[in-house]
Write a protein that binds this DNA or RNA. Sequence first.
DNA 1: TTTT
DNA 2: TTTT
Lengths: 163, 163, 163, 163
Amino acid sequence: MAGSVNKVILIGNLGADPEIKRTQDGRPIANLRIATSESWRDRTSGERKERTEWHRVVIFNEGLCKVVEQYLKKGSKVYVEGQLQTRKWTDQNGVEKYSTEVVLQNFNSTLTMLDGRNSGGGGNFGPDDAGSGFGSGSPSGAAPRRAAPASSHRGDMDDDIPF
Amino acid sequence: MAGSVNKVILIGNLGADPEIKRTQDGRPIANLRIATSESWRDRTSGERKERTEWHRVVIFNEGLCKVVEQYLKKGSKVYVEGQLQTRKWTDQNGVEKYSTEVVLQNFNSTLTMLDGRNSGGGGNFGPDDAGSGFGSGSPSGAAPRRAAPASSHRGDMDDDIPF
Amino acid sequence: MAGSVNKVILIGNLGADPEIKRTQDGRPIANLRIATSESWRDRTSGERKERTEWHRVVIFNEGLCKVVEQYLKKGSKVYVEGQLQTRKWTDQNGVEKYSTEVVLQNFNSTLTMLDGRNSGGGGNFGPDDAGSGFGSGSPSGAAPRRAAPASSHRGDMDDDIPF
Amino acid sequence: MAGSVNKVILIGNLGADPEIKRTQDGRPIANLRIATSESWRDRTSGERKERTEWHRVVIFNEGLCKVVEQYLKKGSKVYVEGQLQTRKWTDQNGVEKYSTEVVLQNFNSTLTMLDGRNSGGGGNFGPDDAGSGFGSGSPSGAAPRRAAPASSHRGDMDDDIPF
DNA sequence: TTTT
DNA sequence: TTTT
């Protein structure tokens, strides 16, 4: 369909250490549980109330999975941008179940660490550059124009995509 | 929790006419089914493929529900901005189920019609102004500053929230 | 116009302490300078490069201005959500100038603190509740449904907007 | 910097036909003028008011530029997702000027047509697939997982990026 | 002018 | 300069 957008943006904390699994052919899949909370003052009672929402985040990208594995842990605060997907599965009793997840897979997906506590670099993912395209957020991997001379062969989107 | 964001942005088409229900005390709740699609060319086969995702959108807002009721129908294209919420319920067999929905409820929620086919006004919601704050999108209900004289008592956020 | 969206989302750090001014009739206006940065590895040289972008953020909302005044300072990390506005003005030499700013004014605007360093509460804005609707991010001020009994008169958007 | 986000989302109409220029080395750059509008009812006068904001959108991507050239024209409605950049230049009188633009360049950029009027396909960009990764919106170019067998070598982000 |  |  033309003209479709499916985007989720979350900022929250990991409720547990990430789980990294591998497909049969060796590609990693990272699973995160992220909590977002909202608080408000109840209008009738005047009490402060809070509500926490838990999100399942699934990452199908090798570079991002490395970042997750190396830098994220229970309590880490992250920004994630992905898309909604609902998956159907059958449990051991033959009951159909649905799970809706925030999937980071394609080129519009982003994961950014928002606390520097977990790594020395706080998003600076080291010399192997594993996470260079993703770990430092949505702008990563982008080549700023104008910094480069107009006649240069770089500064183009084609050039700097790290995956 | 401080520093939490939970935001979903969808552009898609209604797969069916909206369902409007009412709570016991008479407040409306609108349910939408929205499809988003993505297409891509398979790298190995070279075939064009397509995948459609269906989203449950629930609207807890009287003004927005009126807009939905009056202008949206099967096939309408909309922009919605809301938040993810997962609801637990028990089916008739006593099995626990979960449903993840995009909820439009608070002041950060938006619904915008993206086709003019369904109404003469295409988002211009008539003299009763039922939808004035929502139907024309996120900026609606906002008072542009600078258009108003600096000494005016309006132009403030307090003044023009229509709900 | 129907079907219009104008939204900016930034996560960055304040390059200076906020400036708070007041209109003639006493309403506050906060100005922030926010830096966002992107880094990438140059494809030809292999060097790591970085580029910083500076944004002007203007806040026309009393509650948000209080939060800014109390908790933000040079170096603070924030999430802001607002809209793009370009303003024309004439300098002292009679030259026309344009300034494009990220404006937080209407009900779709959000400001969230992303570091707890600046306040004990890290977004928990105390008993006077000055920032209750904004400081804890986009979901704030929202009334979670379903937590409230279905027959309650609250849980509606109308009820809990704090401004 | 770690933890930085710079994102603009617009839905609006083109105020003029796109302008496509080329760099010295032949890469295309598309310039769009996009209008977004907001309307509200003035609280004191009760009048309906409207305000239009004009945005400069610059596209540094060959595939996206082809889509723009082929399908967009004055009046077209589009969804764009890019980042804010302010550019400094000196006019013919030696006066320094600044221009803030919404730049679509990197892998997080998106352009989606929201009206089908301009093309038969309404985002279906033909056999040469020029726009396949962009024209159908943010999810485009993504390989849905789970549709592919788990042992497959595709379904990975690496596989289907069209640029 | 921030941050890493 | 768009759109409704």
